[in-house]
Nucleic acid binder design. Sequence first.
DNA 1: GTCTATACGATGATAGAC
DNA 2: GTCTATCATCGTATAGAC
Lengths: 186, 186
Amino acid sequence: MRYSTDHKQQTREKLLASSGVLAKRGGFASTGVAELMKAIGLTGGAFYNHFPSKDDLFSEVVRRELCNSPFARLASQGADRERLRRCLKQYLSLAHLHNPEGGCPLPPLGVEIARAERPVREQAEHWLLELQAAWSETLGDERRAWALISQCVGALVVGRMLASEEVQQQVLDASRDVVEQALEED
Amino acid sequence: MRYSTDHKQQTREKLLASSGVLAKRGGFASTGVAELMKAIGLTGGAFYNHFPSKDDLFSEVVRRELCNSPFARLASQGADRERLRRCLKQYLSLAHLHNPEGGCPLPPLGVEIARAERPVREQAEHWLLELQAAWSETLGDERRAWALISQCVGALVVGRMLASEEVQQQVLDASRDVVEQALEED
DNA sequence: GTCTATACGATGATAGAC
DNA sequence: GTCTATCATCGTATAGAC
């Protein structure tokens, strides 16, 4: 065979990673198959050797993005308060706000996940439940964990809607305060 | 003239209202001009008698949706704590979560606003600053106002990503607790 | 103002050469 | 596996009849 068997795996992985970036930047629905393939140096026709449809790619992109999310490592390995604090401080930064393509998939892809078929939402739910369980352990409060997740995702969604960096910083700082308060309480 | 002058105004208003609903339901970019016009009983060709382009419609839809948002009345007229509490309880309800087309535009349209041109983000910012100012008055804390806005928007974005109503209710309840706590403190 | 018809590009997806 | 060529459909936007 002209192409080794793991070449297909590598191409698939490159496509998943690159598509995650493009989807978080400009939206998944708004990005065509040809554009996704061109980003990894291929043409649109080759796409269907890797995924049966564009929707299937979305499902896999979501799965991969969630596993590689800045939150993910805190979900798998139990996190002490200090580690969680540092992670959320970085999450609620202007650097993250201005870099959706390299950041958490929840703010930029959340709405598209919400409109996707049930299996996609189920895997999002499964991952979010794991995250919430991990944070509950750290915080000692299951409800505060959910509230903190919503707080962080909301801050980025709201912040990215804004035009001026000043106000964006205000929004982020306000949520940082909430995080600090939640992590200092018993 | 076969059509009265205010007939055009009425058509425009119907188009704005209907497009807001469709955009919040399925996304603005994903909804074609023909579909938007068909929803008010017209064909696609008539669209350009009312707006020079689809992007211009989006800008007007965002403006109108913000002014008619469940938050809007609380922004214009100063709100006492009790009024704000009742509004946020309704905001953080399963009824609202399952009815994006009739609810707040921030969760379903926020990401598209973030990717829109600067003027769109500027008017979103202007409106959000007014809302934050009003809530600051009620809460007596400018930062808590921003945090509360992010909390509410985030809860709906996260909740709508989920598959099961149980977990959705948990996410909403967690943010309700935060709202109650913020409104009870001095 | 609204219609139909149309231009023209982009879309998701397929077929067959290599 | 990837390419080019192609299909059918849809997208935004325009032109002209009524």
